[in-house]
């Protein structure tokens, strides 16, 4: 696929500089039955140009984290404590108007199933133009907008003529590409991609992930990928966070986590993912169900399903500790996991 990115602004990036810092974020949903502790003490940092992945089962809070970053949570959500700093500015203290300025211009989002959010009665190009109008009011002439959109489209592997088409003339994959073009429209520094390829076929999924990875590298953007499928984001992320029941249980460089998962949950998650390469391994199913977050388990939230749980896990909550080289784990037994792993194999 021929693409031209040279005209889109390429940012000078400093890979050691943090772009987004999530610091001890706690967020609850208030419902009639009580408070759901959806995000509990989650901290991670996204550096400039970095791709971070968040994985976990349904209801583990990964989507809530994404929505928190954009402050798009439903009205019954309540930020209890913590900070979300974007370029040093705490997003939680911004007024709704100031937040709106950041959204899309600095932080854009590609939702799960966003490809179905196109308005069917407008041309795709006109819908992107609307975004440009909102954020660059008067700064771009009609022709400049057109030129910019054509560049965006070619950067995601679509032809410029497709700007004049209606959404129903696009296939699912093309619509999702157009969504990505829309997300890129204001050259954001950060893109949050929540299950960006979940509804797509494998081949299209592969193409889109590769496209995103290339664009991210070329434009110097940061991306947060969110998925329930650890295999999908293995190839596209630099760092990986594993979430369980509202908590970040393991965080570190993707390659480290894949090679040496130290949280039993991350370990089991990896072991339960079928693969087509390598010898056909025995798969270890993750037994049990995720807990009800209205009354989360005491101590380590994973202890009811953990094969290694001890009494300590039931009473004391393990902190997220650094165990070397940016690898952080919240488990009392992380040192023993390799041994226990062997025991499981036998």
């Amino acid at each position: 696929m021929t693409t031209s990115l040279e005209n889109l602004e390429t940012r000078q990036i400093d890979r050691t500089k943090p772009l987004l810092e999530v610091d001890r974020l706690v967020m609850h949903y208030k419902i009639k039955a009580g408070e759901v502790s959806a995000i509990e003490d989650v901290s991670f940092t996204v550096h400039q140009g970095e791709a971070v992945g968040l994985v976990g089962e349904s209801g583990c809070g990964k989507t809530s984290v994404a929505l928190s970053l954009l402050r798009l949570l439903p009205s019954n959500a309540e930020y209890v404590s913590g900070e979300i700093r974007f370029n040093g500015e705490d997003l939680l203290y911004l007024s709704p108007d100031e937040m709106r300025q950041h959204r899309w211009k600095d932080i854009a989002m590609v939702f799960q199933g966003a490809m179905n959010s196109w308005n069917p009665v407008y041309r795709v190009g006109d819908q992107i133009r609307e975004t440009l109008d909102t954020h660059y009011r008067g700064a771009m002439s009609y022709d400049q907008q057109r030129e910019h959109m054509e560049r965006l489209f070619s950067s995601v592997g679509l032809t410029p003529e497709m700007l004049d088409r209606y959404p129903h003339e696009f296939s699912g994959g093309m619509r999702q590409r157009a969504v990505i073009a829309m997300a890129l429209a204001c050259s954001p520094e950060l893109i949050i991609a929540d299950e960006p390829t979940t509804a797509l076929d494998v081949i299209v999924q592969d193409q889109i992930l590769k496209e995103l990875k290339r664009i991210q590298a070329e434009l110097g953007m940061s991306i947060i990928y969110i998925s329930h499928d650890i295999a999908v984001i293995a190839e596209v992320t630099d760092s990986l966070g594993v979430m369980y029941a509202g908590k970040l249980v393991e965080y570190g460089p993707t390659s480290t986590i894949f090679a040496r998962p130290r949280h039993p949950y991350a370990y089991l998650l990896l072991r339960s993912t079928p693969s087509i390469t390598g010898p056909r391994r025995e798969l270890a199913p993750l037994e049990g169900e995720p807990p009800n977050l209205l009354s989360p388990p005491t101590g380590c939230r994973f202890h009811p399903r953990c094969p290694f749980a001890t009494d300590k896990c039931v009473t004391d909550e393990p902190p997220l500790e650094e165990i070397g080289d940016g690898h952080r784990v919240a488990c009392w037994h992380h040192e023993q996991v390799p041994e226990l792993e062997e025991a499981l194999h036998r």
Binding site: V202, I203, Q205, D206, Q207, L209, D229, I230, A231, V232, A234, E235, T237, T254, S255, F258, A259, L270, T273, S275, I276, T277, G278
Partner: peptide
């Protein structure tokens, strides 16, 4: 086959 994601970044 080549498009199937593999849970191994290496």
């Amino acid at each position: 086959l080549s498009a199937v994601p593999v849970p191994d970044p290496a």
